[in-house]
């Protein structure tokens, strides 16, 4: 199942069955709370890893839109926030179960995304970027102003929702709910990874690639541009919505300042530095953008004492990666493999 490095062939993945690799990865992530409990890692790292997980979910959908289909959206944060607030309200104010809130929030937010996708057919490139940005800004302003629903600028704190339709939250079950929510996060990430994998390697993925590579060829080959654009936007907003719902229920809080352009740009950056059109690359990119400062650099005393320099370092790192690895850091794997082959040849 796991090929030995010595018999490695060009183009073959290291773990033969992709599904197996996703499952193993999911298992690894699922063990994090245990590691935290045992003191192998800091307990706060579980929260940071959780943030890598939900941002990766949004980034995977964005990669489908930007990486595979070549359409720019700067509105990701807006859709995340919208779904977060809707789900928060449905569980906390309307006392409905988590699953209902999740489906409602994702459906509403995705419909908005599909609407934006429909409008996108008329606009290209930079204008599309600005249009999506405008949508996100309108949403953010709504979060600030519509405060019977959102709590306004000071944000909306909530409690844990009822899980599986019967498990009501009480303070005694705090640890259980914390862990359950984390495992739900991991499950959704692996599910989205598998979904993206399945869709992108088949007819849908080829159609999206064609849309990106040559609209003329795509149309000549019978690909309905509108249909696939709508799909791409819909998928990206669905994953962003899912990520927003998971965010607000894991952190039990959200505020309007979380859903700014900066977040949308960070997710675009994450995809680019991690690897466009690459699933593990997306997660790697999100890790670099989101977790480096608090997990990796914080270990180094200089950066722990000078967090502004840590921020700068993170930014410079991103620039360097784009300069020298424009196809994403994940391709480092390919280069290492070439190195292995070279070394093998020498002996």
């Amino acid at each position: 199942m796991i090929k030995k490095l010595s018999s490695y062939k060009k183009g073959q993945p290291l773990i033969k069955n992709a599904y197996m690799s996703y499952a193993l990865f999911g298992l690894f992530l699922a063990l994090m709370p245990l590691f935290g409990y045992l003191g192998i890692i800091k307990s706060s790292y579980v929260t940071i890893i959780a943030s890598v997980i939900y941002y990766s979910i949004a980034a995977l959908g964005l990669n489908v839109l930007l990486g595979w289909t070549g359409l720019i959206s700067l509105g990701t944060a807006g859709f995340m926030g919208l779904a977060a607030y809707i789900s928060a309200y449905i569980t906390y104010n309307m006392h409905l179960p988590f699953e209902i809130a999740l489906v409602t929030a994702v459906v509403v937010s995705t419909l908005l995304g599909v609407l934006v996708g429909y409008i996108s057919l008329r606009i290209e490139g930079i204008y599309l970027a600005i249009a999506t940005l405008a949508v996100a800004e309108i949403l953010r302003k709504t979060f600030e102003v519509f405060d019977p629903f959102t709590g306004g600028a000071s944000g909306k704190p909530i409690s844990y929702p009822t899980l599986f339709f019967f498990y009501k939250y009480s303070r005694a079950d705090l640890k259980i709910f914390e862990t359950l929510l984390y495992l739900i996060l991991v499950l959704f990430l692996i599910a989205v990874m598998i979904l993206v994998h399945n869709l992108m390697k088949g007819q849908v993925g080829r159609a999206l690639n064609a849309l990106r590579g040559s609209e003329a060829a795509a149309q000549a080959m019978g690909i309905n541009l509108l249909k696939y654009r709508l799909f791409a936007f819909g998928f990206a907003s669905a994953t962003a919505s899912l990520a927003g719902v998971l965010y607000v229920h894991y952190n039990r809080y959200t505020n309007p300042d979380r859903w700014l352009l900066a977040l949308s740009l960070n997710l675009v950056a994450a995809i680019i530095i991690g690897g466009v059109r690459n699933i593990y690359g997306t997660i790697l990119g999100v890790f670099i953008v989101v977790a480096t400062k608090d997990m990796v650099l914080a270990q180094i005393p200089y950066f722990a004492n000078n967090p502004n320099f840590a921020l700068m370092f993170n930014g410079i790192l991103i620039i360097l990666i784009i300069l020298y690895y424009p196809y994403g850091l994940i391709r480092i794997g390919a280069d290492l493999k070439k190195l292995v082959v070279k070394i093998k040849e020498k002996f």
Partner: peptide, 30 residues
Amino acid sequence: AEAGLACTQEMINDNKVFSLVGHFGTPTVG
């Protein structure tokens, strides 16, 4: 907000502080 949550968890669960003093900022406190 979510970084503040992680940091506060670190303070309470990992560093095991006796008390928080000067808990800072609307997002983190919220």
